[in-house]
Design a binder for these strands. Structure first.
Lengths: 263, 263
DNA sequence: CAGTGTCTCTTTGCATGCAATTCACAGGTA
DNA sequence: TACCTGTGAATTGCATGCAAAGAGACACTG
């Protein structure tokens, strides 16, 4: 209790003890402890450094990040709410494990929501088609001939592309819901599972989406987005032991919203 | 620091100071501080005791609940993640305010997701039709002739009805997403806004849903659920200054998935 | 040898204290 | 009057200490 006072005005991590041998503390003191903890832990999970089922100990995380347990606890609660980790009372928090069934749930949801959002975006018309087009072209550069040079950047560009469309749907909850549901595929590092052919097709879809939104033709936009999501679903599953196509029945169920008569 | 030790073994709230004049402490000591705080605060928000825009002070809440600020903070973080409150760094937490636009967002999302989930429930067939039927009949009793005797119970039954269908869809994320998006209408105490006619129609929909799921006919089930949600949307809006029908364009957009050819 | 009690050690849950930030408001200046 | 500016009270952010709940080791008993 005496030394605490001294430590307070310093970037907290320098206080109590000389930093231990490994000092992967949060960079500088900007940001805020709880946010930093959240970001760092989240990154470690998504990047696979913390594998599914591993326990996340408050004490260990606090020390490695360079903050006290309090902000770590806050970060873990956020991650729990987002479904990235599981929390058991008095036992702790462990990284959520995922199965093929989870992947099917996610993609069947996306196959309903994203086409609908794309239709809305084409209808409301408040979308920056040029910016979207730029993203599509940038992705071509990062993955010439269907072979990605930088999977991380490709993933980031792809996320931005999809987010931009959903945000143009004028339904903020739609965008929120999709991004909350999508967390997990990041772990699977989607694009690293695509064949060159599949990736080329995916990038072509992006250009077609730009065209459909520029037209704007809501039916076209919706339909291309549906193809895009379902193609992605196949691409990811095929590599996976290739057990079977996306849900025999699910397949039909999802296509429910396909092939509509024009409104 | 001396008295603390004494207080520790008691149900924490009895410790430090003789309880103040108002003692709405958490009932008994069962449950756990953070969960209790979460439940109590959530209830106060949904019941309208804490009105939109009101600030939620950690200290005040902690005292009124009878725990320290730590579990209150945890509860507030959960509520933030769920969208019931807004959090501003270093300023605090205030009850989220809602607009007609929010209501439109929510119902247009429901109008896409719930019919789809209902179709899935009819397809997978793992639904307890009898239990569902019992719920529908119980609702008839609680609202004879479209005049509810107990709005709270009616609301609870209705939530159970819808949740049961979504849980039968075999897509846990779908159920999760819908319930997370639906929080707000609870605040609007949906059924208190229905006319007797509208409420009678709503209850009739429930019986028709049971029939469609018992058949089981996915197209029928999906279609009834779409009618059900869109009717609810109108019922809630009409009382509201009756400015206009659910989104002129939105209306078309949502019906996107309507009137399909049978699969 | 399986089952059970207990003991210890680890880890979480919660309370509390101090620093930092924000806001309202008063007082000074142009 | 309009606009800074600084001061103080209220409030959050974070660190830390103690109690309680689990998990595993180990001996004891049937």
């Amino acid at each position: 209790m005496p030394r605490k006072v001294i430590a307070y005005n310093l970037p907290c991590c320098y206080g109590p003890s000389i930093m231990s041998d490994h000092t992967p503390l949060r960079e500088a003191d900007n940001g805020h402890a709880a946010d930093d903890a959240y970001r760092l832990i989240r990154e470690q999970i998504l990047s696979g450094q913390r594998s599914a089922g591993a326990w996340l100990r408050e004490g260990e995380l606090a020390e490695s990040i360079g903050v006290s347990r309090t902000p770590v606890r806050e970060a873990l609660r956020r991650l729990t709410a987002e479904g990235l980790v599981r929390h058991e009372r008095n036992r702790g928090v462990q990284v959520q494990a995922w199965s093929i069934h989870d992947l099917d749930e996610i993609f069947s949801l996306r196959a309903v929501l994203e086409p609908w959002g794309c239709r809305l975006a084409a209808t409301t018309g408040i979308i920056d088609v040029d910016a979207l087009d730029a993203l599509a072209h940038r992705m071509d550069e990062v993955a010439p001939d269907g072979r990605p040079t930088d999977v991380d950047e490709l993933t980031e560009l792809n996320n931005r592309f999809h987010r931009m469309i959903l945000e143009a749907s004028d339904n903020s909850r739609l965008a929120g819901v999709v991004s909350s549901v999508i967390q997990m595929p990041l772990v699977w590092r989607t694009f690293s599972r695509y064949s060159p052919d599949a990736l080329r097709r995916s990038l072509a879809h992006h250009h077609e989406l730009v065209a459909a939104l520029a037209a704007p033709d809501p039916d076209w936009a919706e339909s291309v987005m549906r193809s895009h999501v379902r193609a992605a679903w196949h691409s990811i599953r095929l590599r996976d032991g290739g057990d079977r196509a996306p849900g025999p029945e699910l397949s039909d169920q999802v296509s429910t919203t396909a092939g509509q008569p024009p409104l």
